[in-house]
Simulated assay, not measured.
Amino acid sequence: MKKILLILALASICFSCSKDDEDVTPKLDERLVNTKWETYDLAYSIIYGGTAYEVYEFISSTEVEQYTSKNGKIVDTDGTYSYTLEYPNLTITKEDNKKADFIFKDTRTFIRVGAEENDYYAKYIKQ
């Protein structure tokens, strides 16, 4: 009986140790996953007419798709990029390691760093 109690105690200690190790592993911030953010795309609207939007769609905790939509349909795709979120800072890394930096103003708005909040391409609103 004492052997069984000793085995159970050791097993309990081992399981609690492995759980502690799992808790130490940093977790990726997933609050942007499955969200879309858009801003008015003036350049596209001037060239092709109508009202178009530049969209960032966060497809995972590390990847974001950028595209242009018009009348609810994707009309131009820029690509899929990596991103890091260290709230309130968001960095999207595009081709050739070019970085686009943004800052969250609130839970529904982020703006491009270095731009004025009223610039047509700077303010992204959660959809």
Rank of each mutant, 00 (worst) to 15 (best):
I74N: 01
C14L: 15
R108S: 15
K36Y: 04
F15A: 14
Y87E: 09
T62N: 10
T68S: 08
N97G: 01
W37S: 01
G72H: 11
I111C: 04
K99I: 06
Q66E: 11
K36H: 05
A11H: 10
F104D: 04
G114P: 09
Y44H: 05
D41S: 03
S82E: 14
G50D: 00
D20A: 08
L8C: 10
T62F: 07
L32R: 04
D20Q: 08
F102V: 04
D23C: 13
T84S: 09
T93Q: 05
F15I: 14
Y67W: 09
E38Y: 12
K27C: 12
K105L: 13
G49N: 00
T35H: 01
F110R: 01
K73I: 05
E117D: 11
E117P: 08
E86A: 07
Y40R: 09
F110V: 09
I92Y: 01
K70Q: 11
L32S: 01
D20C: 04
F15W: 14
C14Y: 07
F104V: 08
L32Q: 00
S16I: 01
T39M: 00
D29M: 06
E65G: 02
E116W: 04
A52N: 00
E86G: 01
T109M: 03
Y56E: 10
R31S: 09
L10I: 12
T109D: 01
N97C: 02
G49K: 08
T39F: 07
G114L: 04
D78N: 15
N71M: 12
P88A: 03
A100H: 07
S45H: 03
F15C: 15
E57F: 08
T109F: 07
I47M: 15
L28I: 14
N34A: 07
D101M: 15
S69I: 10
